[in-house]
Every structure is written in C-alpha cells, then in structure tokens.
Nucleic acid binder design. Structure first.
Lengths: 228, 228
DNA sequence: CCTGATTGGTGTTTAATATACACCAATCAG
DNA sequence: CTGATTGGTGTATATTAAACACCAATCAGG
C-alpha cells in the first residue's frame, strides 16, 4: 500500500477579493501583474500556496506580498479548478474574500506586483486568467449575502463599517449595498431593533455640522441551528 | 522565466456530502473505507482529482465509483487544506454538497468502498480524517441556507422534494428542515404566494386516503442583484 | 355497501411588522 | 450672527404573519 503518491498534481494558488466601499461605490482591490503570464494585466491578488501553510495563511501572505495589505478577515469563497484556466499548467485556486471598512487599507504595490489599485465594480479593467469570472461570482455571492440573507440586508453590511460608526454611516453602507435609498427614521428603528447595537458614548467631530453619536454592533448576531 | 514549475504540490481530492430526508430525518450518505489510511472507518465519499477533469467532474466520478450514485446536482461548498489533515501527505480537498429528494438515490457500495449507507445527522459514526468537521460545517451551511436565507425557509428546501410534489410533502420537508410544525393553512397560503408554484394536474394515488393534487416549482426563483 | 380511519383542502380574525411622511437641533464656516 | 449641513425624533396606515376548526375524498375492512 503506497503511502507516497506519485500521481501528477495540480498546483494550488489562492486569490483574494478585497471589497470596500469608497466614494460611495463598491470597489475591489486589484494588482497589476509583474510576471508572466499576463504580465502587465490587472488581476486579483494571490499566488502559490506553500506546503506547510494553511490555505488562508497563504492567502494572507500573498496579500501582504502583493498589495501590502495586512490584518483583513478572509472568508473562503469558492475554488476554481477548470483545466486550462491557467495557460501554463493545471492550477487550482482557492478564492477568498474580505469586506472591509473604507479607509482601513492603504494598498501599495508591494514586491510581487507593479501596482495595486481600487476599482469600482462598475468600471473594471480587463482581467488576467479567469479572474473576471471569479470576480463576477464574488459580486453575486455578496449580493446574495446582503440582499437575500435576512430578507432585506444581512450582517455582512457591518463588515464594511468600522467598529464604531454613526447611524448615518451605517445607512449609507446599507443603501450602497442594496442600491436604493432608505428612509432615515425607519432605518434607524429597524437597525436598532434588529441588530442589537449599542451606543458607545463617543461622537463624530470636525465634520462641519452637528456631530453624530457613535454605535457598535454587540458581538453575537448569527445564524440559527438546524435540528438533527 | 520558468513556465514549468517544480515546486512541491499538495494532492487535491474532492469530498461529496449527499443530504436527503429519509424517515422524516435529515440524513447523509457515508461510505466505509476500503484502503488505508482509516481502512474500515466511515467517511464522506470522495477521492483524488485527475489532471484533465474539472473539480465537479472529479466529484461526480468519485461518487459513482464509491457509492454507485449518479445524476446528482453538486454545489461546491468549501475547500479544506490544513497541513496535517491527511496523515499521509499534504492533501487539499474541495467539498461539494447535494440535496436530493428521498428515494432518488439507491446507494450501493461500489468498487472503491466496502459499504455505503445513510446516517441520520443525529446518529453519526466516527469519521475518518477531518470529515466530522467538514460534515458539521456543511450542516451549518445548510441551516443558514434554509433558516436564514428567506427569513424563514429558503428555496433549498425544494431540492429535497421531487419535481412534482403534494403540498403535504412540501410541508413535511419544510417542517423537518426548520425543526418545528407548521400550520397547514398558513403554510399553503405562504407557499403558493411566495414561490410561484403551479398545479400539474396530477394526483397522488394508492395512499389509502384522499389523493392530493400535485404541484411543481415554476423555474426562475432566485436572488436579486447588487448595483454597481 | 356501509363505516371508520386517514389525509386533503379551505377563510376569517387578530397581532406583528413594514412603510410613508415633516420638522426642530447642533455644529461649523464665513 | 447667519446660513448651510447633517443629526435626531413619532405617528398613522398598509402589509404580512399567526392563530384557529370543519367538511371532503379515498381506502380498508367488516
């Protein structure tokens, strides 16, 4: 019984989709590739996994190496392994995504990429490999999580907000994700009654107008269980 | 610039979680392993991917080889790649799941497994590898899809029903997935108004009591879009 | 063929949740 | 001091969900 396998193996990479809301638009972080194939093309940041690291750790490492980004909570999203998706060789890629508050990330081109930049989903460049497909899938998954999950808007919306946020900030994020304007009073009533949110005591300042009270999401707002 | 990579590569497998409702319980299909490691232990069906097949095709092939199961709609679920999860070697596995109507599958132990059997989720055997973790994750995902998705019960419930079903059958499935009894009249009202369901004209027969009208889900009942 | 057992099928009333809608308050810039 | 800008609040109406009971159709068995 052979314990060491000699069968051919695909390579494994990770790809990481970082979404954020900037300038009131949903945007994604892309890098410009340095090496072949697709040198010079825009792509989702990512790269080969090492033998001794878990998938998510490889993704975090690549994110650091290519975009100078650290400290983002990654959620695994989907794995792509169609033969031919990489022109060099059989490559299976595990895609992760992260939803982050705006301003929390300063993306700079790091060693493995020649540039790193935010793109609104409405205005994307051509992408390397099957990255356009991956991005489209991620966008749809996000839409499902956001719009379908809790009848109106799911808790993923909070991932786009900083830990402490004003109700107006929250409303803005929910509006962008849902693509429609919401009534201020109804939104506040709904947010406070649905999501167990507490006032922090802090206020916004230096805004040029009346300051807003700050709130935070009390931890522990998750899915229910299935019997059996 | 090297186009052929000599770096070490993990092996890639697929694992397939087949859920069905049998005897009014949510059950999962497991196989008993023939080979090492974990020979004789129960496990989620699955196996190594080939170089020329897509991930889902490899999963379908393994399902056929190990459990004699064909023709199930697989949905990719999650990928597991923690170093050490397979005692032999670095193995990354892509997990799929399928939700199928009861009676639609006759599982028989096929060539690569010594047995294939349904287990209620309440009464699972010890599992090989990290399969208990994978199964727990799948169960939770299913719970989220079912319970959270549409405020009460999502369209995945229909995956457990045959193409034509009576309203009582539907109610039974929804009750099992939600773990609570539902009011017959309210359920029917809700089902018919929410899901665009049409009468087929057919009836159940040979049930020993009044026959029930048959319905089907009109195709096209999906998620909304995200702007931008 | 008559009876009982079993599941199929149907509306209305009440409670809960969601929606529509307008004004005063606090800060900052000039 | 004034105007511009965003923060903050309540009520009335419409929609959606929940509770609740009886007759109908088939089949099995006497």
């Amino acid at each position: 019984m052979s314990y060491t396998y000699r069968h051919p193996r695909p390579s494994i990479t990770t790809d990481i989709l970082i979404f954020s809301i900037r300038e009131r638009k949903l945007q994604v972080l892309l890098i410009q590739r340095k090496g072949e194939p697709f040198a010079g093309a825009w792509a989702i940041p990512g790269g080969f996994i090492r033998m001794d690291e878990d998938l998510v750790d490889g993704a975090l490492r690549e994110l650091q190496e290519e975009a100078g980004v650290t400290d983002v909570p990654l959620v695994q999203f989907r794995t792509y392994g169609r033969p031919g998706r990489d022109p060099r060789d059989r490559v299976v890629t595990v895609a992760f995504m992260a939803l982050i508050p705006s301003g929390h990330i300063v993306a700079r081109a790091a060693s493995d990429a020649s540039d790193a930049q935010w793109f609104p989903l409405t205005d994307l460049p051509a992408l390397a490999f099957d990255h356009a497909e991956i991005l489209a899938d991620a966008r749809q998954r996000l839409a499902e999580d956001v719009t379908v999950s809790v009848q109106r808007t799911g808790r993923v919306a909070f991932d786009f907000l900083p830990a402490e946020f004003s109700l107006s900030q929250a409303q803005s994020v929910f509006e962008i994700l849902r693509g429609e304007e919401l009534d201020k009073r109804n939104f506040r009533k709904w947010l406070l009654s649905t999501w167990s949110i507490e006032e922090t005591g802090g206020q916004t300042s230096g805004t040029g107008h009346r300051p807003a009270a700050l709130y935070r999401l009390t931890p522990g707002t998750d899915a229910k269980d299935l019997p059996g």
